[in-house]
Amino acid sequence: MRNIILEFERIARANSNLVQRTRRRFCLSAFRDLGLGKLKFEEEIVEEIQRLCNFISKYDQTEFSPFRLLDMVTCNIVCRLIFGHGFAYDDPKLLRSLNVVVEAFKDSSFTGLINFVPWMKYLPFSGFQRLKRLGSQNLGFYKEMIAIARENYCRDDPRTFIDVYLNNQGKIREGHPDIAEWFDDEDLVSCIEDLFGAGTETSSATLKFGLLYMVLQPDIQEKIQAELDSEVGRNRMPSFKDRPRLPYTEATLLEIQRIGSIGPFGVPRAATIDTKLYGYDIPRGTMVIPNLWAIHHDERIWKEAESFKPERFLDSDGKVNRREELIPFSIGKRRCLGEQLALMELFLIFTHLLHTFSFRLPEGAQPNLEPEMGLNRVPKEYMVVAKSR
């Protein structure tokens, strides 16, 4: 968010392509060093999910909103990656920081237009100044966490994203003198801001769509639970290694990502050369933003595109068909670098919830399927009732 909104002038002067490539390579390397996608980090995720399930159990078949709980579990998973630990669900610092992220995503719908008409950021009604204020509110929290990480920092045993960044900061600046000014403590704050915001809101929004469709179509929920009971059993919780043996569950998660399309537009791109696409001239430097929602809801690609049908991702043998038209994380060299983390946490949170509880709507409830629009798509808040299985 900082790159788009808070630093137009600095980016304009910098070799942003090299900055982006260097930062991306570093982040991917850091994720691997921290065990992302491996059993070690799965255990971290499962600890947070257990906390989530314990909270849900307290409602004891009374209605509640799952929204804040889903925000908290995804937020704490990202916090474990960045800071090395999660926070209590009632921690005031985390609640305040999470509120800023949620509000910033709601208010960011105009940023795509600012990419094309930059002077609009100066208009008082554009919301740009409010977004700048929101962005600055979390800086103190991030700097405080960096200071704590420095006190506990051990070069020979990096355990958090901050540790890995501090270990490699000098190497990056020496290897790229033309952009060395970027890889300072301010840039570390920017990386944390991006990971904290994007890693929290996108996954929680997907889960909110997922739980909504489970209560709207209980027959699908029951099929998933039957598959979990058959392939995993009732004596243990699902593991990420169970994923290949749960095709209907996996197909449902793919359909949630398709119909939810929580990131309706891909990240902004720019043409590197003059080109022509489907008869349209696109001059070099033209900003291009792909419409992922349109791809995911195109009736020419998806029959009955507005219907929720996991079966569209299963072949005739009942195996998962990962169709190339589904691109929730975008495609190419700038596809979402948090995809691996998102897929693991979506699978684990979704399967643990349905393995532990059966969800239904409160009597007479009729959720509104029109989403809230901001930087991403999120369902309007709804209530559910959970019964332990």
Rank of each mutant, 00 (worst) to 15 (best):
residue 83 F to V: 13
residue 89 Y to V: 10
residue 69 L to R: 09
residue 22 T to K: 04
residue 304 E to A: 12
residue 370 E to L: 13
residue 273 I to H: 05
residue 57 S to V: 02
residue 89 Y to I: 03
residue 267 V to H: 03
residue 12 A to I: 03
residue 72 M to D: 13
residue 328 P to L: 05
residue 346 L to V: 02
residue 38 K to T: 09
residue 20 Q to S: 11
residue 24 R to Y: 06
residue 212 L to E: 01
residue 165 Y to Q: 06
residue 338 G to A: 12
residue 232 V to I: 14
residue 199 G to Y: 06
residue 368 N to F: 04
residue 352 H to Q: 11
residue 63 E to K: 15
residue 67 F to G: 03
residue 292 L to Q: 09
residue 279 G to Q: 10
residue 321 N to Y: 14
residue 8 F to N: 08
residue 100 V to W: 08
residue 132 K to L: 15
residue 60 D to E: 14
residue 62 T to R: 14
residue 31 F to S: 08
residue 264 P to F: 02
residue 57 S to Y: 09
residue 389 R to Y: 12
residue 360 R to F: 00
residue 101 V to S: 10
residue 144 E to T: 04
residue 323 R to P: 01
residue 25 R to T: 05
residue 89 Y to S: 14
residue 309 K to F: 04
residue 142 Y to D: 02
residue 153 Y to A: 07
residue 85 H to S: 15
residue 177 P to T: 07
residue 292 L to H: 09
residue 86 G to R: 01
residue 283 P to A: 11
residue 376 N to D: 13
residue 42 E to D: 15
residue 164 V to S: 07
residue 384 V to A: 04
residue 260 G to Y: 00
residue 383 M to C: 05
residue 30 A to S: 15
residue 263 G to T: 15
residue 145 M to Y: 06
residue 263 G to P: 01
residue 230 S to C: 14
residue 85 H to A: 14
residue 283 P to N: 03
residue 259 I to P: 00
residue 160 T to F: 06
residue 281 D to E: 14
residue 246 L to E: 04
residue 233 G to Q: 05
residue 82 I to W: 08
residue 168 N to V: 00
residue 174 E to C: 10
residue 130 R to T: 08
residue 14 A to N: 06
residue 145 M to A: 07
residue 171 K to C: 00
residue 69 L to W: 04
residue 83 F to H: 10
residue 185 D to G: 12
residue 20 Q to Y: 10
residue 328 P to R: 06
residue 61 Q to N: 15
residue 389 R to K: 15
residue 298 D to G: 05
residue 287 M to H: 07
residue 314 L to I: 11
residue 262 I to E: 09
residue 220 I to E: 04
residue 157 D to P: 00
residue 204 S to A: 15
residue 384 V to W: 00
residue 202 T to I: 11
residue 386 A to C: 03
residue 93 K to A: 14
residue 169 Q to E: 14
residue 66 P to H: 11
residue 177 P to E: 10
residue 174 E to R: 13
residue 200 T to L: 05
residue 301 I to W: 02
residue 158 P to N: 01
residue 177 P to H: 09
residue 365 A to F: 06
residue 133 R to M: 01
residue 332 G to Q: 08
residue 288 V to G: 04
residue 146 I to F: 00
residue 360 R to H: 06
